[in-house]
Amino acid sequence: MKKILLLAVICFTTLCSYAQFESSKQVYESPKLKEAIRTHKLVAILPFNVKISYKRPPKNFDAAANRQQEIQMGKNIQGSMYTYLLRKADNYTVSFQDVEKTNVLLNKAKFTDSLEMHTKDEIAKVLGVDAVIYGNYDQETTKSEAGAIVTTALLGFGSKTGEGGITMQISNGADGEMLWRYTKRMNENLLSSTDDVVERQMRKISRNFPYSK
């Protein structure tokens, strides 16, 4: 009986901590947003800038390999976001450029490794789009995979193994001005994939997404 009660308390505490942590979000809308998006027809999604950190770095931590993982995750988020928006294309007032085309054009212009060195209107001109979606994602792992597996086995679902935060922005292609910004913190767990993270966030973002009909 004591074990069942303890397990119930752990489950309740875990769920409460999830709800509390994931309740934090901020949305900014430029006074020019509504006027600007009326002229938008094609929007590009850029690779996200990703930062992966560890509360306690794992053994044999390789900084170069970690950086490659960050770059790959940035492209994964870009691709997952495009897939999500494509699935719900009828809900939006604009079309989204195929991310493969976006990345080819960025590579041809030699922008791929220096996006932060170019203004958003410069990038939009190279891509031939009316606006660009871009952002940051930071992830800090706070629990070992082994510890997460044990907790998952006890509770029956993926437990919190870290914390993450996503910032998504839209800038006008004509002048590079930021029109919209969404920021939210969230929990991570052992079972989360990039697709899962984007799916969860886009469901929340869709309530405030400026291109929604």
Results as ranks from 00 to 15, higher is better:
Gly128Tyr: 13
Ile77Arg: 06
Gln69Leu: 06
Glu188Val: 03
Asn76Phe: 12
Met202Ser: 05
Tyr137Lys: 01
Asp90Val: 02
Glu35Val: 03
Ile4Gly: 00
Ala131Ile: 14
Gln78Gly: 06
Lys160Pro: 02
Gln201Ile: 13
Gly162Gln: 06
Leu155Asn: 13
Ser159Arg: 05
Met168Thr: 02
Tyr82Asp: 04
Lys160Asp: 08
Thr141Trp: 13
Lys55Arg: 08
Phe111Glu: 02
Thr161Lys: 07
Ala131Lys: 15
Glu199Gln: 09
Thr152Met: 07
Thr142Gln: 05
Glu199Leu: 09
Gln139His: 12
Ile77Tyr: 04
Ala19Ile: 04
Ser171Glu: 12
Glu188Ile: 10
Leu105Gln: 11
Ile170Glu: 05
Gln97Trp: 05
Asp196Ser: 14
Ala124Val: 04
Met73Gln: 14
Lys120Gly: 06
Lys108Asp: 15
Lys55Leu: 11
Ala64Asp: 15
His118Val: 05
Asn107Tyr: 10
Thr102Ala: 03
Lys204Leu: 11
Leu127Trp: 00
Lys41Asn: 04
Asn187Tyr: 05
Arg200Trp: 07
Pro210Phe: 03
Leu85Gly: 10
Lys160Arg: 00
Thr112Gln: 05
Val9Lys: 10
Lys34Asn: 07
Lys41Cys: 00
Leu105Ile: 10
Ser95Asn: 08
Lys110Asn: 14
Ser159Phe: 12
Ile71Arg: 09
Asp121Phe: 14
Tyr84Ala: 04
Glu177Gly: 11
Phe61Val: 13
Glu140Pro: 00
Tyr18Glu: 13
Phe209Met: 09
Glu70Tyr: 00
Leu154Trp: 11
Thr102Met: 01
Cys11Leu: 12
Leu105Trp: 07
Asn91Glu: 10
Ser114Trp: 02
Lys120Pro: 00
Glu188Gln: 12
Ile4Met: 04
Leu86Cys: 00
Pro47Ile: 15
Ala146Thr: 15
Val94Arg: 00
Thr102Val: 11
Asn208Cys: 08
Gln69His: 06
Thr161His: 04
Asn187Gly: 01
Thr14Trp: 06
Pro31Gly: 02
Ser114Tyr: 01
Val197Ser: 10
Ile37Ser: 05
Glu163Tyr: 11
Gln20Phe: 15
Ser80Leu: 11
Thr152Asn: 08
Gly158Asn: 12
Cys11Pro: 02
Glu70Ala: 01
Lys101Thr: 06
Lys120Asn: 12
Asn187His: 10
Ala44Asn: 09
Thr151Gly: 13
Asn49Glu: 08
Thr93Asp: 01
Leu42Gln: 01
Leu7Phe: 07
Pro58Leu: 08
Leu154Ser: 07
Met1Asp: 12
Phe111Pro: 00
Lys55Tyr: 08
Leu106Ser: 03
Asn91Thr: 06
Lys204Cys: 01
Ile166Thr: 13
Leu179Trp: 11
Thr93Ala: 04
Tyr134Cys: 00
Ile77Cys: 04
Thr161Glu: 04
Leu115Thr: 05
Lys2Arg: 12
Asn208Gln: 09
Lys59Phe: 12
Gly164Gln: 03
Lys120Ala: 07
Met202Val: 06
Phe111Thr: 01
Tyr18Ala: 10
Gly164Thr: 07
Tyr54Asn: 13
Ala63Gln: 15
Val104Met: 14
Gly162Phe: 10
Ser193Met: 14
Arg207Gln: 11
Glu188Ala: 03
Arg185Glu: 09
Thr13Pro: 03
Pro58Val: 11
Arg203Gly: 00
Gly74Phe: 14
Val27Arg: 09
Gly156Ala: 13
Glu122Phe: 03
Ile123Gln: 05
